[in-house]
Design a protein around this nucleic acid. Structure first.
Length: 235
DNA sequence: GCTTTAGGCATCGCACAGTC
DNA sequence: GACTGTGCGATGCCTAAAGC
């Protein structure tokens, strides 16, 4: 390990913890002497790192020193870019805008050769989804309802064109089969139900708070889709 | 008193220039 | 090209100072 690599490793070790790390702990992590760690810390401070050292406590990064990790591999960048474009193309306007801004922030700190590589790889990756404006609006309102723990009401037309009025406890939004679905606890059926957003009508967020705290999307997935990739499914 | 930080000093390894 | 001397940076050991 070169000195430069070790300096970066020290920053990463301090960044990854909320508690201070002693020079002894750092030296064990990096397999060098304690004295070397002291010199490295000094070198980092000379270069502007905001590291506090205190006898009996150890070293820690101050709040100003908590720099974001900006080193991405090209695969990580590609994953981030693709994910953000997917969100931009299929999620509600608020999330779409947030995804776009996040992507711009990532790009702004990339070196030129990385930006060029991402642009080069971007061309073959097409995100061909379409979500209509009112469905995006529904998705945004449902997200807010979940965050505020409010029940939502809407008219629903099932696949056999039967019309019902529902009040549900929204649990999550799931995107599969090229369309958005609302996973919810249905007060009418007293059970978990999944609703396609395109079949919702007149969605309204009520003032009523959640009535079944034990009903969660994790519980739904455990009961109905135990093999589901929850990191992909849950929103 | 123990733990931790920090300074001084010696040693080692590497790069580079000079000489043969 | 091989060898040698020199300079510099990195490292480890020892020890003093400071905090709990």
């Amino acid at each position: 390990m070169t000195k430069a690599e070790r300096l970066l490793a020290i920053l990463n070790l301090l960044r990854g913890r909320h508690q201070a790390m002693t020079a002894q702990q750092l030296s064990e992590h990096l397999d060098v002497s304690v004295r070397t760690i002291y010199r490295d810390i000094e070198a980092l401070c000379r270069q502007g790192a905001d590291i506090e050292g205190e006898a009996g406590i150890g070293y820690r990064l101050t709040d100003r020193g908590h720099l974001p990790p900006l080193t991405f591999t090209i695969d990580e960048l590609e994953a981030l870019t693709f994910g953000a474009r997917l969100v931009k193309a299929s999620a509600d306007p608020t999330l779409a805008q947030a995804a776009d801004q996040a992507l711009q922030k990532v790009r702004s700190v990339l070196p030129a050769h990385r930006q060029h590589e991402i642009e080069r790889r971007r061309a073959p990756m097409l995100v061909a989804t379409h979500t209509s404006t009112h469905l995006s609006q529904y998705a945004a309102e449902i997200r807010q309802a979940i965050a505020a723990e409010r029940l939502v009401s809407f008219g629903y037309q099932d696949e056999k064109r039967r019309q019902t009025d529902r009040t549900v406890q929204p649990l999550g939004l799931v995107y599969w089969g090229y369309c958005w679905h609302l996973v919810a606890w249905c007060l009418l059926r007293e059970s978990y139900r999944v609703f396609r957003l395109e079949r919702l009508q007149h969605l309204e967020v009520t003032d009523q708070r959640f009535c079944r705290p034990e009903a969660t999307i994790q519980q739904y997935l455990q009961e109905y889709a135990p093999d589901a990739r929850t990191d992909f499914w849950s929103v």
